[in-house]
Amino acid sequence: MVRVTLLKKATDLIFFHRTDKWPVSFFESMKQSIAVIPEFITEDEEKCLLQEIEPHMKRLRYEESHWDDAIHTYREREQKKWNPANEKVLERIATTSFPEDALHLSYIHILDLHKNGYIKPHIDSVRYCGDVISGISLLSDCVMRLVHKDEKHLIVDLHLIRRSLYKMTGIARYDFTHEVLRHNDSYFNDVYVPRERRISLIRRDLPKKEAKLNVEWKPLGEAVPDIKHEHK
């Protein structure tokens, strides 16, 4: 009974606009390409993650815009080593979201989005990450919107509630832009979703060609100057 309730809640966190306009096969494929799992971490696990993250984030100032103009009013860093308790949480993201044979980027991307910040529509470059993008939301809910890159009427909203996990793969990863709506536009199925400062911890697998080469990626601040990181 508990499992059925959880699945229903997870389904309620995904909203397809104008389902009558979706080709049936495409609709079914999209449903298999996205997931939101509520209460993926506990309140204590969130607190433990924040205790490790916050001292580093406080040293950074919020940036008004990203190099590619995709993110506004944010700060970010990447981290490889975590305390044992948090390492278990991050490993749980990996085992839940990725195939067993996936090769992961060794650094976790930490994105701190100000209450007034937002992320514009974009598709993460295949140069910097592979088939799966997955992350957890700390401190606040938000609405993530996916829009088909060509058929703009094909829209899906994800209600990323605090402490939930989201996953994008397949056509959601490659054929749809994704964005985080501004706090004034933060509506899910016509219901306003209040937004505060939000921190997301994002895991990615290696791009296919890079995975074959067993490339070790550098964190933000240590990257080769002509390599830029994509965000979500």
Rank of each mutant, 00 (worst) to 15 (best):
K21R: 14
W22L: 11
P23S: 00
P23M: 01
S25P: 07
S25F: 10
F27V: 05
F27K: 05
K31M: 03
S33N: 13
S33H: 13
I34Q: 02
V36F: 00
I37V: 11
I37G: 01
F40Q: 11
I41H: 04
E43N: 12
D44R: 10
E46Q: 01
E46W: 00
K47T: 07
L49V: 03
L49H: 03
L50N: 01
Q51A: 10
Q51Y: 06
Q51P: 04
E54K: 06
P55W: 13
P55T: 15
K58A: 10
E63F: 05
E63H: 08
E63M: 07
E63L: 08
H66G: 12
W67M: 10
W67N: 10
D69V: 00
A70Y: 10
A70Q: 08
I71S: 11
I71N: 09
H72P: 02
H72Y: 04
T73S: 14
Y74T: 11
Y74I: 09
R75V: 03
R75K: 14
E76A: 09
E76K: 05
R77C: 13
R77N: 12
E78M: 09
K80A: 06
K81W: 06
W82V: 00
W82K: 00
N86Y: 02
K88Q: 14
V89Y: 06
V89C: 13
L90P: 13
A94Y: 14
T96H: 02
S97P: 03
F98L: 04
F98R: 03
P99E: 13
E100V: 07
E100Q: 08
E100L: 05
D101G: 13
L103Q: 12
H104A: 03
H104F: 07
L105V: 09
S106A: 05
Y107A: 09
Y107Q: 13
Y107R: 10
H109C: 07
D112G: 01
K115S: 04
